[in-house]
């Protein structure tokens, strides 16, 4: 059992993460302060929510690069509507509205992918442009320096607080609960429901999935609809964190999320990937992006480190696979 765990990707990523954290923490003890950990959690929240969507798509053998455009569009439209209505109620309404807009956009993705049968990367490259263009032209391209009251109150809601050495009060932002909730739901769907197994099945062999009786088109609508919802939720949390709505935000960062998911052991060709691994991948990317600066690594180098870790992280499992296949072939050729 222990051997099995050591062989997994999750174990490998967890090791890199622990070593990196210890390394940074020893050089600069600030890393291990509660304040820093709370900051890291806040940074991981939005990427984590996006990563759950990216994970589902990657397991099904696809790649979706439009979720950032969906997130920013859904959030911007939501903020605009709620501000126009002078809505001061709960953040739940903002999140629900943003998720609904995300769902509609996700279903547009699904329809294009299912009916034209074009590769998902191409389809979503197209819709990424389409959604953002639509947003800028029809809804607005102006930066909004304000968000509805509910979102502001949510941004100030902390689960626990701590006082920093300089006397300021910081805390663990409540958005992390949304990430935890989303992660549990996605984990449950992927592991215990027939539709979840169908997502893995399509990623393993689409033809076999069809022959087995899975409704592949319906599953695709489920996948891209869910990704739209998650993008919408992530967008709303993102807007709350920054207390502003900038239509030029987020788009362009989707590859960071996809990299985190792949780093967490999801196979880009489909059929393999776990929620736990994706969370680990996101944590690693967040630590690299936020904490290398603590030990004096200039921000340009963060990209280099991220690149190296991604290549190693994706390269080692691929290499292990290659070796395993070679062994299998050697065994089979008598």
């Amino acid at each position: 059992m222990l051997k099995k765990i050591i062989k997994t990707n999750e174990f490998f990523v967890a090791m890199i993460l622990i070593v990196l954290c210890l390394f940074i923490g020893i050089l600069n003890p600030v890393f291990f302060t509660l304040q820093n950990l709370f900051d890291l959690c806040r940074s991981a929240t939005v990427m984590g929510i996006f990563a759950m969507g990216a994970l589902i798509v990657i397991i099904s053998g696809g790649v979706d690069v439009s979720f950032t455009a969906i997130a920013i569009s859904a959030m911007y439209i939501t903020v605009k509507i709620l501000l126009a209505l002078n809505f001061t109620g709960t953040v739940v309404v903002a999140i629900a509205l943003s998720a609904l807009i995300g769902l509609i956009m996700g279903l547009i993705n699904a329809a294009i992918i299912a009916f034209f049968k074009i590769p998902t990367l191409i389809a979503t490259l197209g819709t990424q442009s389409l959604f953002q263009g639509f947003l800028l032209f029809f809804i607005g391209s102006k930066y909004i320096n304000n968000v509805p009251d509910g979102m502001l109150r949510f941004a100030r809601t902390n689960l626990v607080t701590t006082t920093t050495s300089s006397g300021a009060i910081t805390g663990l932002q409540a958005g992390i609960l949304i990430l935890i909730g989303v992660a549990i739901i996605v984990w449950f769907i992927l592991r215990f429901t027939m539709i979840g197994r169908g997502i893995y099945a399509i990623g393993g062999s689409r033809e076999a999935a069809e022959r087995a009786g899975f409704n592949v088109v319906a599953i695709q609508f489920f996948i891209y609809g869910l990704v739209g919802i998650l993008a919408g939720i992530g967008g709303a949390v993102f807007g709350s964190h920054y207390k502003q709505a900038n239509p030029f935000d987020l788009v362009g960062t989707e590859l960071n999320t996809i990299a985190a998911v792949v780093l967490g052991g999801a196979l880009i060709t489909g059929g393999k990937g776990t929620v736990f691994g994706a969370i680990l991948g996101v944590s690693l990317v967040v630590v690299i992006n936020n904490s290398l600066v603590l030990i004096g690594v200039p921000s340009e180098w963060q990209k280099v480190v991220l690149g190296i870790i991604l290549i190693i992280g994706a390269g080692i499992p691929a290499y292990k696979n290659m070796m395993a296949e070679k062994r299998l072939k050697a065994n089979l050729s008598e």
Partner: peptide
Amino acid sequence: LFPNFTVAENIALNSQLSENKKLV
């Protein structure tokens, strides 16, 4: 067959699916 599934799941999944099971 599904290369990414275990032996157990490959054997049992299709019949579970045709019984219209929602959970696995």
